[in-house]
Simulated scan of single mutants.
Amino acid sequence: MTESPIGVFDSGIGGLSVLQALQSALPAEHFVYWADSGHAPYGEKSDVFVRQRSLAIAQHLIERHHIKALVVACNTATAAAIHELRTQYPQLPLIGVEPALKPAIALSRTQRIGVIGTRGTLGSDKFHRLLSSLDGQAEFIVQPCNGLALAIEESTHISASASSEKITALLRGYTGQMGAFGRGPGQIDTLVLGCTHYVFAQNELQTLLGTDVQLVSTGEPVARQTRRLLEAAAQLRSGPAPIAASARMQLLTNGELSGLQAAAQRWLHLPHAACHKADPHV
């Protein structure tokens, strides 16, 4: 199993932000990434639907690609399906993502922390249990952002300026409902990006909120946890010096191939040849 790839999946291109952190932390590993863009976004789908998709993708990655670990690079899928995935595949190292509330507490000075995410993530029992476990440690201002993940997903199909304007308009509307941002008393000084797609809107967010506001995402903690689990299972790939990323990445999508190719080239500097159409029967 040591030579087998690590599976990663998301509802679309958002999980590429996690893949970016994984390839940096695990330079000798091979990866198979599944973008379920034909069913995106998960955040506005039912839990039952998200669980069905998560189980189907996991089964395919295990049976067809013989993965040695699975990273659920989607907050909504983690909230809806991680328990069932662990029950179904107890021997498989499984890593999910969740909004990085604990790291945000350590960073915040005003102890007013914003959290943005999909309605599916922020409305889940898993998120509310996480929030309750941190009661009294900080004040969390939680804001669902309907349509934002989809706008980022679609940004690979339209001009950079037009997509940036649409994303900025959505961000301005949602952050405007949360209150004042900054380092002053009573202001939100830390913002948790509770959807892996939102990492690709960091530039727009930082411009909008100012450099005093810290943005917190989940990619690096997930990469560290993946490494820890593989080390514990003695499944880290041992090999020569790190090989080129394009030689160890296989990206699959059941959406438009051109969209994944554009996203992979823009954010991971991967050639179009690394991207492929996924099995339509999954």
Rank of each mutant, 00 (worst) to 15 (best):
R183I: 08
A25S: 09
A245W: 14
R112K: 10
L92N: 07
R129Q: 15
C145D: 06
R224A: 09
V213R: 04
I152V: 11
R224N: 06
R248A: 06
E44W: 10
C74W: 11
Q20R: 15
P103R: 03
G239I: 06
G194K: 04
I67T: 07
S155H: 07
Q250C: 09
A28Y: 12
K277N: 15
G7V: 11
D189E: 03
M249C: 13
S161L: 10
N254P: 00
H276E: 05
G38I: 12
F140P: 00
V222F: 02
I243F: 11
D212S: 15
A77K: 01
H39P: 03
N254T: 01
N146T: 12
E154Y: 02
R228C: 06
A233L: 10
L260K: 03
L268R: 09
N203V: 14
Q52C: 08
S124D: 00
Q23V: 07
S54W: 01
P93Y: 05
L229D: 08
S17A: 00
M249V: 03
L270C: 05
T121S: 00
D212Q: 06
C74R: 10
F200H: 15
F31V: 11
G12N: 01
G96I: 11
S217N: 08
L251C: 14
L257C: 05
S54G: 03
V199E: 12
G259S: 11
E256L: 04
H197C: 11
R53M: 10
P280M: 04
S238E: 15
Q250S: 12
A56I: 08
S132H: 13
I62G: 12
Y33C: 02
E44F: 02
A69V: 06
I188R: 00
L101D: 07
S238Q: 13
K277M: 15
Y198A: 06
H83T: 15
E98F: 01
P144L: 03
S238V: 08
G114E: 01
G123M: 04
H269F: 02
A40S: 05
A232S: 13
Q187V: 11
P103D: 00
A273T: 14
T218C: 15
Q261I: 06
M178W: 02
A81Q: 12
L131Y: 04
S258A: 13
I116T: 01
I167F: 01
G259V: 02
K102C: 07
G120M: 05
A241G: 12
W267T: 00
W34L: 03
A232W: 00
L270H: 02
L107D: 07
L208Y: 06
R266G: 01
